[in-house]
């Protein structure tokens, strides 16, 4: 069993007066893929957006309980959200490249963190594009606008952009829900490759996808964590009736 990278303990979250997460406790191990599944509105996005403090942007969002990254409290007073996000990257549901060139998209993060050296930037851009299996397709088009790429390419570009910052953790929020099956397969292959170097948390609506890419699976329902365990066990021998119902498609 590998080290625990992220751990939540009794995490509660309210949007205004509505409670969206209830006493979530789970531990996500290092360099493994943890999938979060559950019906729409059950708090999956809310939960992973806690991990990189994206919920800071939401007015009226209140959190109690503990959320630890490498043992440090993510919501502690001495945690700097900007520093945290360098270590915990995020890929969103809708591909969201900046309206800039492919090169500038990927160089954005390193530049944010003060890198100006052209050769170094070139190297990072190439490395990141190779790591996201996009180099062969766009290696010659680095000056082209990123918004001209196909949806699947845009999503891999967003992954490359995240890799360029050299995070330890990558959060994926339904990265394939806007993509066709072939692009989806490419992203899944990518995740399977990336898990050797990164801790990955992925939200997905697609059961097969969770089964294919993840080591652990968490099943959320109405803001609560119903079940968390090895993916194989969750899919083959779930403890809870509601998990089984969801996985077999009887509701949700």
């Amino acid at each position: 069993m590998s080290e625990i990278e992220i751990e939540s303990r009794n995490l509660d979250l309210w949007y205004g007066s509505a409670q969206a997460l209830k006493k979530i406790s789970m531990a996500m191990p290092e360099k493994k893929v943890t999938a979060i599944i559950g019906p729409s509105g059950c708090g999956k996005s809310t939960f992973i957006r806690c991990i990189n403090r994206m919920n800071d942007l939401v007015k009226g969002c209140r959190i109690t309980g503990e959320l630890l990254f490498e043992g440090a409290d993510i919501y502690g007073n001495d945690m700097d959200a900007v520093e945290l996000r360098k270590k915990i990257g995020m890929v969103f549901q809708k591909p969201n490249p900046f309206p800039m060139s492919i090169y500038d998209n990927i160089a954005y993060g390193p530049r944010v963190h003060g890198l100006r050296n052209k050769e170094e930037l070139d190297r990072i851009v190439e490395e990141s594009l190779k790591a996201s299996a996009l180099w062969d397709e766009v290696g010659d088009l680095l000056d082209q606008s990123a918004v001209d790429l196909s949806g699947g390419q845009q999503q891999r570009l967003c992954i490359a952009r995240t890799l360029a910052v050299k995070p330890k953790v990558i959060l994926f929020d339904e990265p394939c829900s806007a993509l066709d099956p072939i692009s989806t397969a490419k992203i899944e292959d990518l995740i399977n490759m990336l898990k050797h170097d990164y801790t990955i948390v992925i939200v997905t609506h697609n059961m097969q996808q969770a089964a294919r890419v993840s080591d652990h699976t968490a099943f959320f329902l109405l803001g609560e964590l119903v079940e968390f365990g090895k993916t194989k066990q969750i899919f083959e021998l779930p403890d809870k009736k509601s998990t089984e119902d969801y996985i077999t498609g009887r509701f949700g």
Binding site: L57, V82, R85, F92, N96, Y108, V112, H113, T162
Partner: peptide, 19 residues
């Protein structure tokens, strides 16, 4: 989405506004 992408890459709010 642009703003979120930039912040998620560890940019500050000010940097995000400017760039």
């Amino acid at each position: 989405e642009y703003k979120e992408a930039s912040l998620a890459l560890g940019a500050t709010h000010w940097h995000t506004i400017r760039k």
